[in-house]
Design a protein around this nucleic acid. Structure first.
Lengths: 236, 236
DNA sequence: TGGTTCAACTTGTTATGACAAGCCACCTTA
DNA sequence: TAAGGTGGCTTGTCATAACAAGTTGAACCA
């Protein structure tokens, strides 16, 4: 066997997890128990557990133990971006709500100004929202809205999602250009989303256009990659 | 200071990276040099480097050193999934090619049978392809093709992408349903994609339908999350 | 000059040992 | 009974040590 010990141990545990010997939420044997079971040093056991954690299969709590991570992901449909996110969640049996963190006028940063086709440092409204799924923090949305719209709908935006707010006031969104990528939690995000530093995140970066092809809204939805996925359907 | 040594060291290095002291592609100091610079043990240095790697900022190669990860990501457009992937790459100035790893008839695993609406264990053709961008392994595609199609086009499939092969033979793809999610490299994928275990990956899991609404192809494109992102445009 | 060998340098694996720090249940005490 | 402390469990941090294995370039030989 030229495969490292810690690999063969973490693979053995992985198979036990996927086979159902350890259910989501179950506690794995302690490091000491694994040392005896596999007759290896603690370093090797810890490396094996680190492998599982880095693969998103387990999560360790100091003083408590290592637990199998719950599995199910929530799908966010991209096929019709105008749908209220909450209804998407409700259809999957998830209790969805959002918290308005901030809503302020600021000078537009460079990428925002480019996306919205306005001069750099022109005033835009930036809104930070925290999305909760079944009570747990799941995603943060940071969106930049054209100044006149932000000012006009400030009260509503704090309580209702952005797309419905705009649509209700005669500004339907016609097109959304977006990019999906993967990043890691920095210090700020690890605080918002209650995850460790470096935890994998998905970023949905979008620019929304109104019916007259004018960019109206630019933003990023940053979500826990272990909780979220995106679904879409494309036709020729 | 109650923050662990390895955290403060990796944060120091992270700041140097983001400040540009170490450019993308640059080699970081060796473990030995970092031990002397910070006056700590090798365990601590290795933990600090592991932090950077888990945050996607660096990548380690045995015998060579630790390097700052290159930053630019290649965008894969999802708006028209029928486009030949290579032309997407070429437009971004990327040299694209693929290697046929395997192409074999196998009994369909359960999720494949469900997606293709065939009985479990019915024969399908599974093809593994390795995508190379500028020579470096960037993505693996594992696709399952209905048996009669796999048998008919086996020779062509080893040299040409699947969608063009089907289209050239009168089987155009009309609709693609897909899910995008984030996972981590297991042992097999870390070998294919030349990344460390646990490296973040993006999965594009698709079912392609022909014009008669019949599922024809099911598969997963698994790509390095530090190299790839997905772009899409949706209309109301 | 061309090819091979080898030494030095890199990261990877693994052991042993020690203490810190978080969590929890049990036991003592008021 | 209720409050608080304590001990034993857990994972986290960090040191020293040794060898394995991949990479590279310089020295050597043909």
């Amino acid at each position: 066997m030229s495969t490292p010990l810690h690999i063969s141990i973490s693979e053995k545990l992985r198979r036990q997890i996927t086979a159902g010997d350890y259910q989501p939420g179950d506690k794995l044997p302690s490091e000491h128990q694994l040392m005896e079971r596999f007759n290896v040093s603690r370093i090797t056991v810890r490396q094996a557990i680190a492998n599982l954690v880095s693969q998103g299969l387990a999560i360790a709590y100091r003083g408590k133990g290592v637990f199998v991570t719950p599995r199910k992901k929530v799908a966010y449909s991209l096929s019709s971006p105008l749908v209220f996110l909450g209804s998407d969640m409700a259809r999957q049996g998830i209790d969805f709500c959002f918290e308005n963190l901030t809503l302020d006028p600021v000078p537009a940063p460079e990428p925002v100004a480019t996306a919205l086709a306005i001069p750099p440092k022109a005033v835009v409204y930036v809104q930070k929202k925290l999305f909760r799924m079944d009570g747990a923090a799941g995603a943060v949305d940071i969106s930049y809205l054209m100044a006149e719209l932000g000012q006009r709908f400030a009260d509503t935006l704090a309580q209702q999602m952005t797309f419905p707010t705009l649509a209700d006031n005669g500004i339907p969104i016609d097109q959304v250009d977006a990019v999906i990528e993967c990043t890691h939690a920095d210090y700020a995000m690890s605080g918002y989303l209650e995850v460790p530093l470096g935890h994998p995140l998905m970023v949905y970066r979008y620019t929304a256009f109104s019916t007259d092809q004018q960019p109206v809204l630019y933003g990023e939805t940053i979500s826990r990659a272990d909780r979220f996925c995106y679904s879409l359907s494309t036709r020729a």
